[in-house]
Amino acid sequence: MAAVQTRSERALNRLAIAAVLVITLLFLAPIYWITSTAFKPRNLATTIPPTVVFQPEISPFVKLFTKRSQLRSAPEPEVYAAAPWWERLVFDGGEKVVRSGRGEVQLSGYPNRFMNSLIVAITSTVLAVGMGTFTAYGFSRFKVKGEADLLFFILSTRMLPPVVVAIPMFLMYRAVGLNDTHWGLIILYTAFNLSFSVWLMKGFIDEIPKEYEEAALVDGYTRLEAFFKIVLPEAATGIAATAVFCFITAWNEYAFALIMTNRRAQTAPPFIPSQVGSGLPDWTVIAAGTFLFLLPVAIFTFLLRNHLLRGMSFGAIRK
């Protein structure tokens, strides 16, 4: 903007920048706090006043991944001497815990839940984006009778409250043995994301000029060839953005996972809060688990930053 600013406008602008900085710091403070707690020794995690400066440690992550049991006193010197380096990190923090089992390392429940989350989120994303892209193309390029009603029907399935759908699904899954299985969750998340994927992909495909395919048809391509060789490559960015949105939604989902799984197929969102349980929780371990779980989403948010608006408005607003 070449507009000449008066002195008062410049002062106002500076004030706004300062306010934006303060707001940004306030918004990031909770995320910073959980991240820093993940690297604290246990005795500094819940101090008053809060500990801000400390020597970062990775022992919370060691404790997160291995099964542990409480000892009455500090470990014996021979136990300490026989322990691997990462085990000593935990002892050095003055903790009276030892990994359970006689010698062999047992994994905690966390890595398994994390894997379940990955399996369920990735599979349901592939299915939802795959089917969604085909359907979006169908709606975008062909005349469909009652198109507006069908699209409303598709969107409305996304708006259903999870608990409402979960009651009959729970009964049906129980009848066919899909409770507490990966496929049970994958089907639910695919259905949930499918409507979103259709709406978003339709917006992306609408933007690809029809003339591209028509030229290909004239050149002797069949409609299917034109779709795979012309439309799909053009829609690649849109497909990637849609996939990331679907992945994040499935990754974060809680209510279905809480109701439909309990052990074998449990994902991380119901598992992480259940660790708080009884007694004095070790907040450094919970923070470490939370940090690892949030990390992929934070990375994806940065990759997705130019498409966030579009995704969040179901493709209604384009930038």
Binding site: N252, E253, Y254, I272, T301
Partner: peptide, 8 residues
């Protein structure tokens, strides 16, 4: 914040 899991 809005991209994170509500439960977590």
């Amino acid at each position: 914040p809005m991209m994170l899991s509500m439960a977590v």
